Amino acid sequence: MIEWLLYIVLGAGLGTMGGLFGIGGGLIAIPALGVLFGLDQQLAQGTALVMVVPNVLLALWRYHQRNRIALRHAVPLSLCSFVFAWLGSIWAVGLNAHAMRLGFVGFLVALAVWNVLRMFLRASPPSAEMRYAWPWLGVLGSFAGTMGGLFGVGGAVVATPILTSVFGTTQVVAQGLSLALAAPSTAVTLFTYGVHHSVDWAIGIPLAIGGLLSISWGVKLAHALPEKALRALFCVFLVVCAVMLGFEL
């Protein structure tokens, strides 16, 4: 019972961050499960997805309530992400766990560097309108889905910085669209990990309960923060996740 309460509290913290950054909480849950509970990379990713799937669905609904998500943008993103997340997850469950962790750390560092560079580069003012539509949204969905299936993070963490920098959306709009992309891809990825026995349900379920209790607070905070502050926090968040996993290598 005490362990379940611990997992629920941890899930609540992860859910708040997932709502804040529009990623469902999996990005920080994976290193946390590896560092705190000693799970290998595949098992940590699969277990985190038990929390991520309901968190993403609830966060998507909350973002849509506050800032309506355009279906013409969300549909190509989510459909392509779904297909390529399935392929990425099949690839992931057969890889060496240590190699997966190395790849994941590199993935986080690359994202952090890219986001830091964007803060210093001159860019056009963001808007709710897309600079590019189909087929480029399909390309983004395919790439983000593959990374999400491979690393168990739903693809939102990849899509968000690309949507703000390349497609020119605001951070909040990008996070909402990224959740639409992540919703089907996280579900199919969890299914694949579960079939291959790479999920610890006893940890994942209480994490999911905690996340559902708190993710709305994160969404509310995301809409209250200034654009630059939200981007800066996202960069710090990526670096912290990479450092946590680095200690396990």
Score class of each variant (00 low, 15 high):
residue 68 R to H: 13
residue 57 L to P: 04
residue 38 G to W: 13
residue 21 F to I: 08
residue 76 P to T: 04
residue 59 A to G: 07
residue 33 L to T: 02
residue 55 N to W: 01
residue 67 N to C: 12
residue 18 G to M: 00
residue 87 L to S: 12
residue 78 S to G: 14
residue 62 R to F: 09
residue 22 G to N: 02
residue 56 V to L: 09
residue 25 G to K: 00
residue 71 L to T: 07
residue 59 A to D: 01
residue 55 N to F: 05
residue 19 G to M: 05
residue 18 G to E: 01
residue 55 N to C: 12
residue 21 F to C: 03
residue 40 D to K: 11
residue 64 H to F: 02
residue 79 L to C: 15
residue 54 P to F: 06
residue 45 Q to S: 14
residue 23 I to T: 10
residue 47 T to C: 08
residue 20 L to A: 05
residue 35 V to K: 12
residue 18 G to D: 04
residue 38 G to H: 12
residue 50 V to I: 13
residue 45 Q to D: 13
residue 66 R to K: 14
residue 43 L to I: 15
residue 53 V to N: 00
residue 74 A to Q: 03
residue 31 P to H: 13
residue 60 L to I: 04
residue 81 S to W: 02
residue 32 A to K: 05
residue 54 P to C: 08
residue 83 V to Y: 05
residue 86 W to Y: 14
residue 80 C to R: 00
residue 78 S to T: 08
residue 18 G to S: 06
residue 27 L to G: 00
residue 76 P to A: 10
residue 20 L to K: 01
residue 79 L to N: 09
residue 42 Q to Y: 00
residue 51 M to H: 04
residue 31 P to C: 14
residue 84 F to C: 08
residue 78 S to Q: 05
residue 47 T to R: 10
residue 76 P to E: 02
residue 58 L to I: 11
residue 61 W to S: 11
residue 68 R to Y: 11
residue 43 L to V: 12
residue 78 S to C: 11
residue 44 A to T: 11
residue 71 L to W: 09
residue 56 V to M: 01
residue 64 H to V: 10
residue 31 P to T: 13
residue 77 L to E: 00
residue 69 I to R: 06
residue 22 G to P: 09
residue 83 V to G: 05
residue 74 A to V: 07
residue 37 F to T: 07
residue 54 P to T: 04
residue 75 V to S: 03
residue 77 L to I: 09
residue 67 N to E: 15
residue 79 L to K: 11
residue 84 F to T: 11
residue 21 F to V: 06
residue 55 N to E: 09
residue 17 M to E: 03
residue 87 L to Y: 09
residue 39 L to F: 15
residue 18 G to C: 07
residue 16 T to C: 09
residue 82 F to Q: 01
residue 71 L to P: 12
residue 36 L to Y: 14
residue 16 T to R: 03
residue 74 A to E: 04
residue 41 Q to P: 10
residue 48 A to W: 03
residue 36 L to V: 12
residue 57 L to G: 03
residue 53 V to I: 07
residue 76 P to H: 04
residue 66 R to M: 13
residue 62 R to A: 06
residue 15 G to R: 00
residue 80 C to M: 13
residue 68 R to V: 14
residue 70 A to F: 07
residue 58 L to Y: 06
residue 61 W to Q: 14
residue 70 A to W: 01
residue 27 L to R: 01
residue 24 G to F: 06
residue 71 L to C: 07
residue 18 G to K: 01
residue 87 L to M: 13
residue 45 Q to A: 15
residue 83 V to A: 14
residue 28 I to V: 15
residue 25 G to L: 04
residue 70 A to P: 10
residue 33 L to I: 11
residue 31 P to R: 10
residue 33 L to M: 15
residue 70 A to K: 09
residue 39 L to A: 12
residue 71 L to Q: 09
residue 77 L to V: 12
residue 46 G to D: 06
residue 21 F to G: 05
residue 50 V to W: 02
residue 45 Q to R: 11
residue 55 N to R: 03
residue 87 L to K: 05
residue 63 Y to P: 04
residue 60 L to K: 00
residue 81 S to L: 08
residue 20 L to R: 00
residue 66 R to G: 05
residue 60 L to W: 07
residue 30 I to P: 04
residue 64 H to Q: 13
